[in-house]
Amino acid sequence: MKKNLFAAAAVVAFLGSAVAASAQTVGHVGANYGRTDLDAAGLDADLDTYQLEGAVRFDAGKLGAQVDGAITNYDGDDTSAGATLHLNTKVGNGLVGGFAGAETSDDITVWGVGLEGQANINGQTSLYGQAGYGNVDDLFDADIWAVRGEVRYFATENFRLTGSLGYATLDASGVSNVDTWNAGVEAEYQFADTPFSVVAGYDHADSDDLSANADTVRIGFRYTFGGTLKDRDQSGASLGSASKLFGAGLIR
């Protein structure tokens, strides 16, 4: 666990240093809390999740780049660390590119690669999608294929509403395929003339193969640098992490 915390702390420290290093970078740092109600095969359980996270977008030569990272603690017990690197190029009013990332804890490591794209429509709406392949090889050997999309609507420069939908299928040695669906909604509001915002969301995940479903309510606080919430989004600083795509993290 100490190795995981050290690695994730280094990522978050990098994100923070980028704020002071260049006024041209765009991104955020934040803290989140989530409460999950899990129903698996008729057994109910509650899980509290605490997270520190951040992301920064910058230029990498002729390409755009984003690095995001997170430290996540589950119920005061297990802690995981995750990071994702994105590289992309502008296409019209959007971008296309790829990503590679991983999330690791004492018990399991999930890594993955994939493609993603974003289209900014009519100045108020952004469409974002990602698809990729992931692998787990600690406790068991498993392949994961996943796809996920978001619709983001900006009522104002600093008020964002988001809807998301995702699907993942896991193929493990000696186990039949496990399919999982997830859907969520989120709102973020940045206070006038400040870089500070609050975020709240709800996510639902369901797997008939496991006879399991989970409902998560989350709240958070963020510091945005480099512009408004809309600037952060349309610059390519709000791309989804590998953890979010493959389901390794519960709240990000």
Rank of each mutant, 00 (worst) to 15 (best):
N4C: 03
A10N: 07
A13K: 12
L15C: 04
S17N: 11
S17A: 14
A20T: 15
A20F: 15
Q24S: 14
T25E: 14
T25P: 05
G27C: 09
H28F: 15
V29K: 07
N32W: 05
Y33F: 13
G34M: 07
R35D: 08
R35P: 01
D37F: 07
D39F: 09
A41T: 08
D44S: 12
A45Y: 09
D46R: 09
D48M: 03
T49A: 04
Y50P: 00
G54P: 02
A55H: 01
V56C: 05
F58R: 09
D59A: 15
A60D: 04
K62A: 10
K62M: 06
G64R: 06
A65K: 05
V67S: 06
D68P: 00
D68W: 04
I71Y: 07
T72I: 05
N73Q: 10
D77C: 05
D78Y: 10
S80M: 04
S80N: 01
T84A: 07
H86I: 00
L87H: 10
L87M: 10
T89M: 14
T89L: 10
V91Y: 13
G94T: 15
G94P: 11
L95A: 14
L95Q: 15
L95I: 12
G97S: 13
G101S: 11
A102Y: 12
S105V: 05
D106N: 02
D107A: 13
D107R: 11
T109R: 10
G112W: 00
V113K: 02
L115H: 00
L115F: 05
L115S: 00
E116C: 01
G117S: 01
I121M: 12
Q124S: 15
S126I: 04
Y128P: 03
A131E: 02
G134I: 08
D137C: 01
D138Y: 04
D138R: 06
L139G: 03
D141C: 01
I144G: 05
I144P: 02
V147T: 14
V147A: 15
R148K: 15
F154V: 08
T156R: 05
N158D: 15
R160E: 10
G163D: 05
T169P: 02
A172F: 02
A172D: 00
S173C: 03
S173A: 13
G174W: 11
N177F: 07
V178G: 11
V178R: 06
T180N: 09
T180G: 01
A183Q: 02
G184H: 02
D193W: 09
F196A: 12
S197A: 15
Y202I: 06
D203K: 14
H204T: 12
A205C: 09
S207P: 01
D208Y: 09
D208V: 00
D209L: 06
L210Y: 12
S211C: 04
A214H: 02
R218K: 14
F221H: 03
R222H: 11
G227I: 08
T228E: 11
L229S: 07
K230L: 08
R232M: 06
A237D: 08
A237L: 08
L239Y: 13
S241C: 08
A242C: 11
A248M: 12
